[in-house]
Every structure is written in structure tokens, then in C-alpha cells.
Nucleic acid binder design. Sequence first.
DNA 1: GTCTATATAAAGATAGAC
DNA 2: GTCTATCTTTATATAGAC
Lengths: 220, 220
Amino acid sequence: MAVGNPTKSKSSLNASRQCRDPEVTRSQILNAAEEEFAREGFRAARTEAIAARTGVTKAKIYYYIESKEGLYRTVLERCSTELLPAIEQLNLDQLPPEQALEQFLRQFLTHTSSNPNIPPIMFLEAIQNKGKYYRDTANLLIKLVEILERGIAAGSFRPLDPRHTAVNILGTCVFYFGALENIKHLWKGKRLLSKEMLEQHTQEALNFILAGLRWQPTSP
Amino acid sequence: MAVGNPTKSKSSLNASRQCRDPEVTRSQILNAAEEEFAREGFRAARTEAIAARTGVTKAKIYYYIESKEGLYRTVLERCSTELLPAIEQLNLDQLPPEQALEQFLRQFLTHTSSNPNIPPIMFLEAIQNKGKYYRDTANLLIKLVEILERGIAAGSFRPLDPRHTAVNILGTCVFYFGALENIKHLWKGKRLLSKEMLEQHTQEALNFILAGLRWQPTSP
DNA sequence: GTCTATATAAAGATAGAC
DNA sequence: GTCTATCTTTATATAGAC
């Protein structure tokens, strides 16, 4: 196994075929696999389809990978390498809770907007495989719960259940990406992953979440 | 095809085997299929597994159904028969927007709590099949957008984008059910579908959403 | 390293006895 | 109506030529 250099370009479809650089080929396979797994999940994904997306034969795929399962694990790993470290670097513990939460959400939404395959992959992994191959989402949630607990204790946020609220917040952030095909009918003709729409989602989600945590006019 | 009487008991697993009533058998098959499709989606679901869940042979399944695809369509139809009519009956147009929204959400959350297979089925259908077999979720969203538009126009809610907000609201309601296996680690030892936890989710989601729409202390 | 051809296994669906 | 046995298709994975 040991596929891939995640830093290279990610637009995979119809990527320059017949390439001789093995590193590029590995990367192309990984990108195509990510697309396929994001649309089908592990079990329903077909190596044949991954080959077609990459623009090569099935046999060539198997020259580069160990197995479909190994490829899946590699894709999942690559999905989780960037976000958590980036969030750790923000040193959120040292910011006031409101700012910490906003920074967390901005980082998360920006990262997800740049990697819109991640939410469907995680949904499929959770639903189909019950997290057999991946459990890291929990770490994000725990970070979020900590921020909420701190903010509630400090009186910055209303008194709410931090765990349910963390789940509801994450749901607000990622549902958009998981339900693209269900919600697209609300914006006929618009591409939901365009820069414009992603910025709108980020801003609306952020406003909605922060408002949901503030003390209310009627009960201060 | 033409499977099922949706009104009968729904607990399928290990349901009384060797039953001779064809209506009961149909119902058992439908329930088992719903479970299997909710965990795997259409493509990855196996008729073999549905047979095993029902406690019968594959051949018996095929005596009662036309095909795997037909069974899937029937399951999806059954999922959508109850909620929308129930919401129509509430006559939400005639209530003030805040009350209309609260009624809508209570009905939705109650129905989802009683039918926790529906969110994963809809997630899988949207992600894997791009809504090929099902498009009704859009109707719910449209109803929600209408309520929000009315409330914004009346000044009951903050000025927000009604479509993004409808999506964010729905996300808050259903993410819990779609990501069960990702979030369960926050509540070690607790059953996330217990009556207690479902009531907590309903209440927390409701509070969170309504708070997110209200005018804020700093900008009234 | 890449291809064609193929072995092997799994899954949808059916035949035919009872 | 139900079962065992089987057909057919599809999919993972590999052999072997080039």
C-alpha cells in the first residue's frame, strides 16, 4: 500500500491519462477512489469504476494497490490528516469561548468547503460500517464539547446540554454536504459547491449556530 | 410487488418464523428490508441479508417481491406516506410563524424518533443514488422555507436566508440519526435511540433552532 | 509497468420438487 | 407456499504476455 502524496492537485476526473510517473498515478488513483467512495461507500464502490475515473485499466489499479479495503483505508486516512492538526494549532484553549468557537467553526467549514467529499464519506462510513474503519470524528466532537462547556461555565453561552449541542452544531455544518442531492432543488440552476454558495453556507451556518447559543432577549 | 400493510408492528428482527399469513410475511419482509436498506443503501444491501433478517429463505423473499429494486421502491414509498400528510393536517398556514415552525418541528422530530431508519435511508439515497428513487424530501424543505419567509416578512425572525436556514434546521434535526455511530462515543453506555435520549434530542434541537432565529440582544 | 484474458467468489434471480 | 439446487451476472483479484 502506502499510496499517495496528498499535496498534489486533486481534480481527478479525466486526469492526464497514460502518465508514467508512479507518484502521479498513485495520486490519481487515490483521488478517483475518494470520489467513488464518497458516492458509494466501501461496499458498493467498484474497483472497475475507480479505474474508469482514473482513466486506466483495473489491472493497473491492482498493480498500485494491495486491495480495495487497503485503498479505502488509505482514503480515510488522507481525509483525516489535515483538519485536526490545523485545529490544534489554533490554541483554542487560550481564547475566550465565543472566539474559540468561531475560530473552530471557520476552520472546520473552510476545510469542509475545500474537501466536500469528506462529509459523504464520513456519513457512509458511519451508517454502513458503523465506524469500523474510522472513528476520528469523535475527536472533533470532543473538542467542540470542551469549548461549549467552558462557554457555559463562563456564562458566555446559554445553559444547554453541551453534547447534544455539539452534535447539533456539527449537523448544521455538514448536512449541506451530505444532502446535496436532496436540497439542490431549492436552488435550481445553481451549483451548490460554487465558491459563492459555499461562502453563503459558511456565513449562514456560523450566524445560525452562534445565535443559537446566545442568551435570549426574553430570559436573561 | 404491492407489498405490505404499514400499520402492523414494525419490530422485525427474529419475528415469528414460519408464519403462514401472507400479509404478515409481506410486512415482515418490508420491515427487514427497511433495516437492511437503512444500513447499506440500495446497492450494497443483500437480498440474502434481508432473508436472514426476516428468518426465511431467499427463494421465499422472491416469491413475495418482484425484484430488489421493486422492494427498495416500496420501502421508500412507505417511508414517505405518513409525515407529509400529518404536517399538511396541521394547517400551518393559519398559525403565526413562530408557532407554525414549532409545530412543524415537533411533528417532524416525533415522527423521526419513531422511525429512526428514515434519516439514514434518505442520506444513503441522496448520496448513493442522487435521489433517483426518491425526491420528496424537497417538499418538506419547501414547506419549511415558506414558514421562514413568512416569519421574516412579519419580523418574527431575524433577517436570514430562508433556504440556507431551512437546510441548516433540517440538518440539526436529522444529523443525530444519520451519524449515530460517529457520535455514540460521547454518551458511553447510553442507547441513543432510547426514549430518554430521543426526548433530549428533540428538546435540545428545538431550543437550538428557535434561538437561532430570534432577534439577538445586540441588534434589535 | 501495462495490457488482455481469466480464475474465483459473491449476489440477484429462477427452476422444479414437494 | 416453501424449499434445495442452480443459473447468470457482476465484481474482486490475479496470471502471464508484452
